[in-house]
């Protein structure tokens, strides 16, 4: 999971305030939370920062995918145990014989599914955080390798 520092080190660090923030560090925080986008940082689009911008796009890609629910999956840290797939209350309700009973999730479009040995976000549309605006952390609670995180807790 990227930290604000990971992002800050690729920013221009001039505190130019063009983005509306007082410092580049606070801009880094807002980027992580999805409250600002890279487009807000004008100097980044100058030639001298081209390399940095590409790095930042890479770092932020993983977060942008997850902004709707704040769920961030780091596949590299995942061992594919499927604990998260099995405990997800929505999966249990929708797929009691599959995920609910400890097997691979049988839904066509589940929230999470283990693919190639790593958990992947398939469709956050069913997630209680998205649908019911609930703060549910069931999937993260049973991950001991920190492969799952939520933006608000970063």
């Amino acid at each position: 999971m990227p930290s604000p520092m990971d992002i800050y080190k690729f920013l221009p660090k001039t505190n130019c305030k063009l983005c509306g923030e007082q410092t580049c560090m606070s801009f880094a925080f807002k980027l992580l939370k999805g409250e600002k986008s890279l487009n807000d940082c004008k100097p980044l689009f100058e030639k001298e920062f081209e390399e940095n911008r590409r790095k930042l796009e890479e770092i932020l890609a993983v977060i942008e995918k997850a902004t709707e629910t704040g769920l961030v999956v780091n596949e590299e840290l995942c061992i594919g145990c499927g604990n998260c797939v099995v405990v997800c209350p929505v999966h249990v309700y929708e797929d009691p014989k599959g995920a609910g009973s400890g097997y691979g999730v049988k839904l066509e479009r589940p929230i999470l599914r283990v693919e190639n040995g790593r958990v992947r976000v398939v469709d956050v549309g069913l997630c209680r955080r998205y649908r019911d605006k609930m703060i549910c952390v069931a999937c993260r609670e049973c991950c001991p390798t920190s492969a799952i995180a939520f933006l608000e807790e970063l």
Binding site: I79, G80, G82, G104, V105, R113, V114, E115, G117
Partner: peptide
Amino acid sequence: EDVEIDENTVRHACRIGAELFR
């Protein structure tokens, strides 16, 4: 006993199992 496979994807197996198949 619930592993699904197609050309590019191994589903439901953990990382050890997925690498065995892939």
